[in-house]
């Protein structure tokens, strides 16, 4: 069931086109990862969906009978840190905004701040504020959750707990729209990936589809040779070099290894991996620039 429809949205800042004719349908009970380079327009798209900035043209429609704010939860990039207000007070204040809020205890548990209920918000660490901001986004028991760089500032334990909670929310039927620079985290959890590049949705599909299109395997090695020396290789989807470190994405790892045999004496630290979202995205960028 479609819960959100974005039709032909355009946005420019001055002469710079940030979003060019973006159209999307967001289905319920899924996790949609919006990825792209810095400045690609991810936050702009979220801001337009949430009516925080005006679009030049196009339409954004939440397919709900209720006020869309009653069914959405938002965790923006910046935390809320209201002065002279305690954790308990901000949770209860946020609950009061919604018709069917989650219980205070549930939200406190999500925030992980059971021992700090009467502490002031401004006294929390960056990671604690982030967790509290997440709990507040859940206050109205939303159907759709927007998470913009949710794990920034969280330590690894908190990040793990956070993604477990997201998985739990997905299973309970929530639709989650997320952007993150920690691509390896998204890789394991998102159902659908949207790559925003050059102002358009350059890819819309699953990680499996992205791999089959952009290459399944990643071969990494170090070598004193230069990029031109490997130009004759046939089964390369992309070749990326940083210093003496080579990253090759291929669809046929066996064939490529056979092609690399003559170079083996000049190659160190050879590793074969499944292509990660990180490398696929980098590769995607490289391909488009070519």
């Amino acid at each position: 069931m479609t819960i959100l429809e974005i039709q032909h949205v355009n946005k420019t800042f001055g002469k710079r086109v940030v979003l060019n004719d973006i159209s999307l349908q967001i289905e319920s009970s899924s996790i949609i990862a919006l990825v792209g380079a810095n400045g690609a327009g991810k936050t702009t798209l979220i801001n337009i969906i949430l009516n925080l900035i005006p679009k030049d043209s196009g339409q954004v429609t939440f397919l709900t009978k209720n006020n869309w704010k009653q069914i959405t939860g938002v965790m923006m990039q910046d935390n809320i840190a209201l002065h002279r207000i305690t954790i308990k007070e901000i949770i209860n204040l946020t609950r009061s905004y919604f018709n069917h809020p989650l219980s205070y205890e549930e939200l406190l548990s999500v925030s992980g701040l059971e021992d700090h209920q009467n502490s002031l918000m401004t006294g929390l660490s960056g990671g604690q504020k982030r967790r509290l901001t997440f709990a507040l986004a859940l206050a109205g028991d939303p159907k759709v959750l927007f998470l913009d760089e949710p794990t920034v500032g969280m330590d690894s334990n908190s990040r793990n707990a956070f993604w477990q909670e997201i998985d739990h929310l997905k299973k309970s039927g929530k639709t989650i729209f997320v952007t993150s620079h920690y691509l390896e985290e998204l890789e394991n959890i998102a159902d659908r990936f949207l790559i925003l590049q050059n102002s358009i949705i350059a890819f819309d599909g699953t990680i499996k589809q992205l791999r089959s299109r952009e290459g399944q395997s990643l071969i990494e090695f170090d070598s004193e040779l230069n990029q031109m020396d490997f130009k004759g290789l046939q089964d390369i989807v992309s070749l990326n070099v940083v210093g003496h470190h080579f990253q090759i994405i291929t669809n046929d790892v066996n064939q490529l290894l056979a092609e690399l045999t003559p170079y083996l004496k000049a190659i160190d630290n050879l590793q074969i991996k499944q292509a990660t979202l990180d490398t696929l995205l980098l590769n995607y960028k490289e391909n488009t620039h070519e």
Binding site: K69, Q70, A81, N99
Partner: peptide, 17 residues
């Protein structure tokens, strides 16, 4: 101004209030 700097105004804008 404090509400804007602490992101509370944005928070309220996104809420049903």
């Amino acid at each position: 101004l404090e509400d804007q700097m602490s992101n509370f105004k944005l928070f309220v804008t996104l809420s049903p209030l």
